[in-house]
Design a protein around this nucleic acid. Sequence first.
DNA 1: CCATAAATTCAACGCTAGTTGAATTACTGG
DNA 2: CCAGTAATTCAACTAGCGTTGAATTTATGG
Lengths: 200, 200
Amino acid sequence: MIKRSGRRRGSPDTRDSILEAARRLFADKGFDATTVRAIAADAGVDPAMIHHFFGTKEELFRATIQFPIDPTTEIPDIVAGGRDEVGHRLVAAFVRIWDSPSGAVGASIIRSAMSNDWTLRLMREFLTTQIMRRIVAAIDLDPAEAPLRVSLIASQLAGLAIMRYIIKLEPLASLPSEQVVALIGPNVQRYVTGSLTAET
Amino acid sequence: MIKRSGRRRGSPDTRDSILEAARRLFADKGFDATTVRAIAADAGVDPAMIHHFFGTKEELFRATIQFPIDPTTEIPDIVAGGRDEVGHRLVAAFVRIWDSPSGAVGASIIRSAMSNDWTLRLMREFLTTQIMRRIVAAIDLDPAEAPLRVSLIASQLAGLAIMRYIIKLEPLASLPSEQVVALIGPNVQRYVTGSLTAET
DNA sequence: CCATAAATTCAACGCTAGTTGAATTACTGG
DNA sequence: CCAGTAATTCAACTAGCGTTGAATTTATGG
């Protein structure tokens, strides 16, 4: 009844239902635990449609994790305002992304990477080529120290993601985002600007 | 040829090969991605033996994660020596466990919990009933603040585990344990004794 | 030495997974 | 209006999973 935009190439909108369902399920269960049939059911579509539009399950997964964050809008916000509050802004941006629909992408990758070889490689590449490079560029760090500092930042942020968004450990999971920033920001800040040798 | 201890009940030593193989594989791939058949192959045993000795795959998993840390020896070490170095000792103990063969248990649980419902529940229970309670008891915290502080500590330690032992992000993965303690200890310390409201 | 019970092997069941190919329907450009 | 192409449906295949039960070997206690 409802007339869809009827393009010849590029596909109509069941393609989008599939992508949407896949994003939701991958974020919720990870790559391996999510079945093509479940995605099809959730999208109200025959499993064969998935292969018609996306080919293999792996290709579908890759299609769902096209990073929907525009770095040109996000990164400058983090740098702007001085180096000694970068930690706060990093955590703030991180929490903002994870609380938004785009957080599903992160959840997908983390969940999948824990028990799947190629998604782990994908995550490591993603971390080192995308995130690491951007953080280093954003806050200009001593190149000699940068990898270690970024490792440490990543450890705190990954732990935050897991405890708050995946394990949902209370009270951290229900904490307002500003409080999360206030509590964890300073520690991230220490990894950004703190000494790497002598600590108190 | 070699004579094994021949008890009637309790089983001889293929049982141990199975446990060993299971521990290794579960730690490496997680619960779902590890197949009973792979464990059997790795142990050089028929798959049916696994059910003979352990029943279901789930029961085998539970058998592999019987926590081999004696809390009575580990916990006191953490408390002893004053409250303002608890962070260091917590990280030190954490890294010591993860660098030891017992680290496989943690890896098993984390890997499995990311894409499996009941192992996630198992991990959450483990965190709240075992770890949390012990930490609270060890460092005596204000009961009102304890859950939040432990959440924050858990977030940093979980992130450390994932980046260092699972993702193996460099240079964090190859850092000597003393350096890890020196770098991350102070931040954990902040979660133990730092203010929860106003931060610099 | 023999009966008994555990250890081990083997083959198979039932199920679900990803994937495929052919048949059918719907739609659009000419 | 009519091809032709994309979208959709349907049924099936293959492979691997956890699990089972019966058959067979091994070894020990009496």
